[in-house]
Design a protein around this nucleic acid. Structure first.
Lengths: 336, 336
DNA sequence: CTGAAAGCGCTTACAG
DNA sequence: CTGAAAGCGCTTACAG
């Protein structure tokens, strides 16, 4: 009965060898209730000595908690989104561990409930983080009706949903304002599908800056709903002159394509044309010269969302909108 | 006491309303022990009717299981590795759910024990999948001494470690054999760091094919330990003639760089030079023409490793080496 | 075939 | 400040 490996030590063991009751041992170990200084010391010392580790499952059963949070990430993330979600996930797991919580992972393909349903039925989590909200997301209804607390990574117009995101509109606007202030070039804005919320925000941000700075409509052109490499090529080919312009890319995929196009044309950055992106991911890391971009702190978005969730779980009053700061990277691809 | 939301129904509830003992209800619900047909029917029907869901935590406490597996993925995976691990993870989670298991995720940066230690201390998993083995991996010692079953995604010389992987050497050898049989070109092999096991295997595979087919040493050249874009450029620049060669890339990053170089030089694939990669990931998806490559089934590696782990946990005798089949994609970048 | 009881490892009123 | 007891929701010998 002494194989420490096969039978981890329990509170009962400690109580017995110390001649105390389980209640007392439990209380000092969980730091609750008033305990004699001497007793506390003995228990603490012995617990450390024998390497006692509480059984969280048992504790959970007793207090109706799991000390797990469920995280659902898109299983069908295209290559581009992945670095974002992966970094987010890193932020989440790090914060979770710091609070002695573990992460139960579910991958959901599209607007599918299975994974979330499982996690809910199995009752193995105290709360859920949803990392990509969809239009009419069936999963939020499901989670809601289960009464399990949840937060969303991203933005939702639903003001009752706890959410954390970057203020993309403001970020893009401010970024453009800096650019506009420092130079007089023609802007070409390449933007992705307007079905995606973040692309809309970026477009709004761009436009706000143009309006605020009174940029003449003839001094910028916007291409939206671009969805592919070829789309970018096509749009850029359609320009009468590209010299002396600054290409603004809605995200780093579009930016890669644009860079590809520039290279084929033999145009030099930033001399012939300047270029910048509204999202900086590792996709852009390789490029020389370095690309100016808005830098979104995915890691922090992750940890913040975890912190928020844990607070909601604890019943702490939380604000529903949470924004994490972005930063600007003005590098060699622009004259700033 | 009737708020179905706040208090999920338990076995005790069922037993009471059916006038049975908890034991009996438990037995029919878990399908163990002999039960009267009539009783079984009543219980099953009522359970379904009231939407009974077993509390896995409680069950786990009773039977000393968690119905969770821990998966540790590299937190510092560079962009290239990520699609591989992400796909693997998808395979793991899918198989796990099919067996009513959940996945506890840990991200480990490099040869770090923290995450694994947590997962072990918290005793929330029945087994662990390690998705990137390192030289002298401290984590395997840790896991071993904890007696928690584990399997590794990848290959290890340690024959006591349960592992699942593609047979990279064989894959590359066979791939080259096909290429050699169909054409007479000069081969240029670009290979990554020889500190990484998989790169060694690929090199061996390449060499085996060369030897087996009696290719003269003057008909191929090998560049190893290439670690960057520039490395590739440098090596390729050093060639006296590149026309009429077939470039074999050790992985898809090297391949991207090579493609980049070819484009800059204005060389046309497959007319001026052919090219193929020993690993096909989404990185290569974009290219026109499509790149011939060895296709590694990461999803299957994931699901297989999960299946293996679950079998090991059950105490089923398992073989320690497990290989999952690869396939060849001969596409337009080669004349096959 | 079914039930009463003890147990998994913890917590927490309730007494004292 | 400490302990005996009941409980979290399940399982499983042990009887019958």
């Amino acid at each position: 009965m002494n194989y420490s490996k096969s039978t981890p030590i329990t509170i009962a063991d400690i109580a017995e060898t110390l001649g105390l009751s389980k209640s007392t041992v439990s209380r000092v170990l969980s730091g609750t209730g008033r305990i004699g200084a001497e007793t506390r010391k003995r228990v603490l010392e012995y617990a450390k000595e024998c390497g006692y580790k509480p059984n969280l499952i048992a504790k959970g059963l007793a207090v109706s908690k799991t000390f797990n949070i469920g995280v659902v990430i898109p299983g069908d993330a295209v290559q581009t989104d992945m670095p974002y979600f992966q970094t987010c996930l890193a932020g989440i797991t790090e914060y979770a561990s710091s609070q002695n919580y573990d992460v139960l992972l579910t991958m959901a393909n599209g607007n599918t409930v299975e994974g979330v349903e499982r996690i809910l039925n199995n009752r193995k989590v105290d709360g859920i983080i949803l990392t990509r909200l969809l239009e009419n997301d069936v999963r939020v209804n499901l989670i809601r009706s289960s009464n399990v607390p949840f937060v969303v990574v991203g933005s939702s117009p639903d003001s009752e949903i706890f959410q954390v995101d970057t203020d993309n509109e403001k970020a893009c606007k401010d970024f453009m304002n800096v650019l506009v202030a420092k130079q007089k070039k023609r802007f070409v804005f390449l933007c992705g599908s307007q079905d995606i919320l973040v692309n809309r925000s970026r477009l709004s941000g761009f436009l706000s800056a143009m309006n605020e700075k009174n940029i003449d409509k003839s001094d910028y052109v916007i291409f939206k709903n671009i969805s592919s490499n070829l789309g970018v090529f096509e749009k850029l080919d359609s320009l009468d002159a590209v010299q002396n312009t600054c290409i603004i890319c809605g995200d780093d995929v579009l930016c890669s394509s644009a860079l590809d196009w520039l290279q084929r044309k033999g145009l030099k950055i930033p001399f012939d044309v300047e270029i910048a992106s509204f999202y900086n991911s590792s996709l852009l890391n390789q490029y020389m010269p370095a690309i100016s971009a808005v830098n979104i702190n995915a890691h922090k978005i992750g940890s913040k969302s975890c912190e928020l969730l844990l607070n909601v779980i604890k019943g702490i009053e939380c604000s529903t909108k949470n924004v994490v700061e972005h930063e600007f990277l003005f590098r060699d691809s622009t004259h700033i």
